[in-house]
Nucleic acid binder design. Structure first.
Lengths: 340, 340
DNA sequence: GCGGGAGATGTGAGCGCTAACAAAAGGGTA
DNA sequence: TACCCTTTTGTTAGCGCTCACATCTCCCGC
């Protein structure tokens, strides 16, 4: 355990000399090759320990042609959704013995994603997960590197890549069905920013479910995921006559809407019912606790790594998979029958 | 732009042949070496483009002995604090031309941190940022690799590394001072989990400020950062006579406490004033909007990279720096004079 | 007592790149 | 014209590791 502070770190040859074997034998020990005598192995391990030797993965990667590193491209990891996804990805990757190299984009645009993919490819990552929930990311995915597997999370459906996602349409359907079943005539909607695929899915599920039930479809209110935008939309809904039920595209905006209703003296759920989306850890403690649709971000992250590893093993001939994670309805206290 | 789908990707020598120059000249073009004729450069660039050549950073790293990758070790990046920190770190690193290799630990313990540091060192990262807010991470930092710079964020103060952190004691002082200035006799405290350095700092600031003002110091209530633990603590406070002001160690727990008070019919801020910590994006929309202490996580992340890069440039002889980011008081609607 | 096969170890080459030096090509001055 | 100096390009030798193969031991069976 001698630390050589200023000298160049020891290499395999140093260990070999010290143990009185060839560098190849050291390599064998390090890689758990079976054909090494127990005594030799012990001698090598001792030398490794004494020198404080640590193998150089860069040199190893040069010859093996893989780095055991996966690239992750993601949008704003400050948000709960992407953060949980990336966390799930990282955990699953490391459990499988892979490192994760991260690129978080401030804004998702085709050029940004393309650059990120290019950089990661240069770095020699073995595979890439792209958390690119916006439509504008799709073109970049279409001409992603073809020599390494790429998996998109919540991504475009047209690219030449595998996709793992939550069933957004179904999530919206669950929310709307719940409100209609309570007896509401129709359901309003505060949407997320346009261009997001999740937003499109939720809009589609909301509209479709209302239409299927023969209910009027109000105009969706715009939002940008932030509590503030939910607050503004809530203010508008509070002064719109006839609103009894709202489906909000995420929990943060639902929080803002809750605040707007509170300020306007609109009681939830007595006068207006509200359902969110995501089920962030805070939702359970909102005033009132928020009924919402749970997305299992961790599972999505985990699945994406599973798919990626499968393709990694398959080598050159992998097929594109599509994996859909179901959302779950979580009943709490923000909904009630109309006029409740 | 020919994609060679199945063939091995082109290497520098291929480009050289195609452009009719030596591989060294290709290398010069790629590295912006000044002494290359404009015409030659153009020819090389054209060949690069035609072959779809991409330089192999692994091979480059082997000879240059640096990877332009920084390692980040962090605790649960699902939490807003760590997530924002890591985001700030990643942004700053990439702006400086560095990649980020992530390891998020599920739990922080000495062995986990030590392993993570070891793995990253093997990967050949040029420097490491450790977001290790727990005391138990300190021993691992003490015997961190000595041949590359390591910066701790919110980390132990005894290790042989640079530290960037928010002034927790001052943050707590701001919160308590505010409540005392409003006329409250004393301030109760819902603490975070023990072992966290931030928790210790906030406890110290809370106790110290009360003591300095000659006020009684109640027993701190335990919490674990989660809204649920804040809820439980809130329930206890609601049935404790004489409580008029509470300083909560983070905003999530404050949310839980708010919920508990609402359920027990305790009005905030009229009957109890409450101050949080962190200023998460949601706080402004709590019921009521939460007065809190803002931590600039992004700035902390950015500073940590600044320090790291400075040490990277300094080469072998770097000195250990200590950088403290001030917290900021954010006034909203959850506090009022007692009996307000 | 000796060929043969399995196990244990060593040898040489090369992954794709950069650093250091060597060589060739221009361009001004004595 | 010869000379030197600068600019441009080429050549060679590794970086630290693994792979493929060669070699050397040892033990078994006939």
């Amino acid at each position: 355990m001698t630390a050589n502070r200023d000298r160049r770190p020891p290499v395999m040859a140093d260990v070999a000399t010290k143990a009185g074997v060839s560098h190849q034998t050291v390599s064998r020990v390090l890689n758990d090759h079976p054909n090494v005598r127990a005594e030799t192995r012990a001698r090598v391990l001792e030398a490794i320990d004494e020198l404080g030797y640590r193998r150089n993965m860069v040199a190893r990667a040069l010859v093996t042609r893989h780095t055991r590193t996966l690239g992750v491209v993601s949008f704003d990891t400050t948000l709960y959704g992407p953060a949980s996804m990336v966390y799930g990805i990282e955990q699953a990757a490391r459990a499988a013995g892979y490192f994760v190299s991260m690129v978080s984009l401030k804004t998702i645009d085709t050029a940004g994603v393309r650059d990120a993919l290019g950089y990661l490819a240069e770095q020699g990552v073995d595979g890439i997960v792209v958390v690119a929930p916006q439509r504008s990311a799709a073109p970049a995915l279409a001409d992603a590197p073809t020599d390494i597997p790429v998996v998109a999370v919540e991504g475009g459906h047209d690219g030449d890549v595998s996709v793992v996602s939550v069933d957004q349409v179904e999530g919206a359907r669950l929310a709307v069905r719940h409100l209609l079943d309570l007896g509401h005539e129709t359901v309003w909607h505060i949407a997320g920013p346009p261009d997001w695929l999740e937003v499109e899915g939720r809009l589609e599920g909301w509209r479709g479910t209302l239409a299927a039930a023969g209910r009027p479809v109000p105009e969706a209110l715009p939002g940008d995921w932030s509590p503030r935008s939910g607050y503004r939309a809530g203010l508008r809904l509070a002064r719109t006559p006839g609103v009894t039920a709202v489906f909000v595209a995420n929990d943060q905006m639902a929080l803002g809407a809750l605040r707007a209703f509170a300020e306007r003296g609109v009681r939830v759920p007595e006068q207006i019912s509200i359902v969110g989306f995501d089920d962030i850890p805070e939702s359970e403690f909102f005033t009132p606790p928020l009924t919402t649709i749970r997305q299992d971000f961790g599972a999505v992250g985990g699945h994406s790594i599973e798919v990626l590893l499968r393709q990694l093993e398959a080598g050159a001939e992998w097929s594109h998979e599509r994996h859909v994670v179901p959302p779950r309805f979580v009943a709490r206290a923000s909904t009630a029958p109309p006029g409740g």
